[in-house]
C-alpha cells in the first residue's frame, strides 16, 4: 500500500516549526560512558553517547531493556554520574560542579516525570507543583501563585486543591508534568511516563508533553512504545549502550498545514 505513505499527502504550505540550530541546546550529552561494577562483572551501560536537545524539541529514546535508556536519563538529570563524558545543562557541565550547586541546578533547571507519578501524597496538586520553587527560596505565597498559574495554563486549574489520591492516574501525571516545568525549568526528563496508564490516557499525557515542548521546553522521553515515541521530533535508538540510529525531524509540519489547508 505504498500510496499511504506520508510522502504522497498534499504539501501546500510550509509552517516554520523547526528548532533553531543556532539556539543553545538545553541539554548536551558528550561522549557519555557509564560502567557499572568492575572486572568480570563489569557492565558498560553507556558507550560514548552524544545527544543534544534544543528548546522546543521532544526526543524519544527507544531500545530494549538493558540498552541504557534509563541510565542515560538518570545521568542527564544529575541523579547518577557518568564514568566519563560531559553533561551540560543550560550551559553548565553538571559533572564538574559541587554537590550543593548540583542540587540547586536540579531544582532550577531539571524536571522529572516518572512512571508512578511521584507526587507527594500529603500535598495538594498546587502544593506539589509549588514545592520545587519553595525549596528554591521563593516565598510560599509566590510559589503557589506560580503553581496555580502553571496548572491553569495546562488546563488543570480545577485540580489545584486536590490531593493525589483524589486524582486519576492521568491527572496525576499531568500535574507531574506541570511540576517538572514550573518556573524557569524547561528541561523535562520523562521515564516511561505512560507506563501505568491506559492507552487513551497515555495519549493525552503525551499530547500535553508535546504541547509543552511546542511552547519552548526541551524533553527526553524514554519509552518502549512506538506509538508514544511517535509524538517526538526525533527518535533515538539505543542498543547495548550506543546510539545505533535516529530518525530526524519529519516533514509532518508541512503535511499538517497541507492537510489543514485542504480541509
Amino acid at each position: 500500500m505504498p500510496e499511504a505513505m506520508p510522502g504522497s499527502m498534499p504539501h501546500e504550505s510550509h509552517e516554520a516549526h523547526q528548532s533553531q540550530p543556532s539556539q543553545q541546546p538545553v541539554l548536551q550529552l558528550e561522549q557519555l560512558t557509564r560502567v557499572h561494577g568492575s572486572g568480570a562483572t563489569e557492565v558498560h551501560a553507556l558507550r560514548g553517547v552524544d545527544l543534544s536537545v534544543f528548546p522546543g524539541e521532544l526526543v524519544a529514546v527507544m531500545g530494549p531493556s538493558g540498552s541504557g535508556k534509563s541510565t542515560l536519563l538518570t545521568i542527564a538529570g544529575g541523579l547518577d554520574s557518568p564514568t566519563s563524558g560531559r553533561v551540560v545543562v543550560e550551559g553548565t557541565d553538571i559533572t564538574t560542579v559541587g554537590r550543593k550547586e548540583l542540587a540547586a541546578l536540579r531544582r532550577r533547571s531539571i524536571g522529572y516525570v516518572f512512571q508512578d507519578y511521584n507526587l507527594i501524597p500529603a500535598l495538594t496538586a498546587a502544593e506539589n507543583v509549588a514545592l520545587p520553587r519553595e525549596l528554591d527560596g521563593v516565598s510560599a505565597r509566590k510559589a503557589r501563585v506560580t503553581a496555580v498559574a502553571a496548572l491553569e495554563e495546562m488546563g488543570l486549574g480545577q485540580l489545584a486543591d486536590r490531593f493525589p489520591d483524589e486524582m486519576s492516574g492521568g491527572q496525576q501525571q499531568r500535574v507531574a508534568i506541570a511540576r517538572a516545568l514550573v518556573g524557569d525549568r524547561r528541561l523535562v526528563l520523562a521515564d516511561e511516563p505512560t507506563g501505568a496508564l491506559d492507552s487513551e490516557t497515555g495519549e493525552s499525557v503525551l499530547a500535553l508533553l508535546r504541547a509543552r515542548c511546542d511552547a519552548g521546553a526541551a524533553g527526553i522521553l524514554v519509552t518502549h512504545e512506538p506509538r508514544f515515541a511517535a509524538w517526538a521530533d526525533r527518535v533515538v535508538f539505543l542498543r547495548d549502550g550506543s546510539v545505533v540510529d535516529e530518525t530526524l525531524r519529519s516533514q509532518a509540519d508541512s503535511l499538517l498545514s497541507g492537510q489543514a489547508a485542504a480541509q
Binding site: 505513505m5 512506538p226 515515541a229 511517535a230 540510529d245 509532518a252 503535511l255 499538517l256
Partner: peptide
C-alpha cells in the same frame, strides 16, 4: 530490521502529527 524500524517510526511520527491536528479539527 533497523532500517525498516527507522522508516516505520518516521511514518508513525508523521501520522501522529497529522492526528494531533485532526483531533483539534
Amino acid at each position: 530490521i533497523q532500517a525498516q524500524r527507522h522508516a516505520t517510526l518516521r511514518a508513525m511520527q508523521d501520522y501522529t502529527r497529522l492526528k494531533a491536528q485532526a483531533l483539534v479539527a
